[in-house]
Simulated scan of single mutants.
Amino acid sequence: MAWLLGIIWSDGHLDRGNRVSVCSKDRDLIECIARLISQQNGVRPKNGDRHWSIGFTSPHAADRLRSLGLMTAKSHIIAWPNELPGAYEAAFVRGLLDGDGSVLLSKRRPGQQGPDLRVSLCSASEKLTKGFLDWCSRNGLTAQHYTRGSVHTVLILQQASLRALHALLYPGPDVPCLARKREKYDAWMAIPRAPAGRPRADSQTPRSERPPRRLSLGTPDEEALP
């Protein structure tokens, strides 16, 4: 449910009639929500089948969401949920990223062997962006932030932070998530990483074929000893 809260915070809507709805271009995401709330027949096409939606009407759920900070016309003003327990924050972030985030694999450098990964969150809300940056800081994740127009973007690029973020977002194989984003992330995690530092010039030569190292005594007229 914390994951669903993140989806509602990003792609959801609360109207004045206590109806909560989620709309997305990713049918898999909407079907995942349908399974979670036991409404497998609740998935509906929208905008000429370009989007999919699901919703429910519940005064109790709507009131609870309002107490957490959800409101109508939320895009530019919504903040981090009020008093969200720390144990649920990572699942909430997984929902945010499944809704308004991206997981991108790319090769940008000449001769690059494996792809780079970048995880980003885009939001029109400065308050929500600040909440996400604070969460990253509390969990030791290095993040970059820039604003273009009214859109705030947070990028996570460093390998150590990406690996730590994966552990936070996906603590098990069956957590609810948008499968296509997790599959990219899992694929990057499975790529062996080269050791840090610059390789030695003879690192590709088998040890048995390398010439013996010689030790000089330091004087020009004395032979170097093997």
Rank of each mutant, 00 (worst) to 15 (best):
W80I: 01
K107L: 09
L36E: 11
S58Y: 01
L65H: 05
R64M: 12
S24D: 04
H13Q: 13
N47V: 10
C23T: 14
Y88N: 09
Y88D: 12
A90E: 01
L68W: 07
A87R: 15
S75Q: 15
K107R: 14
D63M: 11
G69W: 02
D49M: 11
D49K: 09
Q112V: 00
L84Q: 00
A79I: 09
K46M: 11
G55C: 08
L70P: 03
G101P: 05
D116T: 09
N18D: 15
A91V: 07
S38H: 13
P59D: 06
V119E: 03
L121R: 04
N47G: 12
P45D: 05
P110L: 08
L121S: 03
G101Y: 01
R27D: 07
D98Y: 10
L117V: 07
A62L: 05
G17H: 11
G48V: 01
S58R: 06
T57Q: 15
D116K: 07
R27M: 08
F56V: 06
P85M: 06
N18S: 11
N47C: 13
N82M: 11
G95H: 04
E31C: 04
P110W: 06
A73G: 11
G86V: 12
R19M: 14
S67D: 13
D26W: 05
D15T: 03
F92L: 07
S58H: 02
G111R: 10
L84R: 01
P45I: 09
S58T: 07
I33C: 05
P115V: 00
A91N: 01
I30H: 01
H60T: 15
V103L: 06
L96A: 06
N47D: 15
G95P: 05
G55I: 07
H60D: 14
I37D: 05
P81N: 05
G55Y: 02
G99Y: 03
C23L: 13
Q40K: 13
E31I: 04
I54W: 01
D28C: 10
H13C: 12
I77H: 14
P45H: 04
R108N: 12
A79K: 03
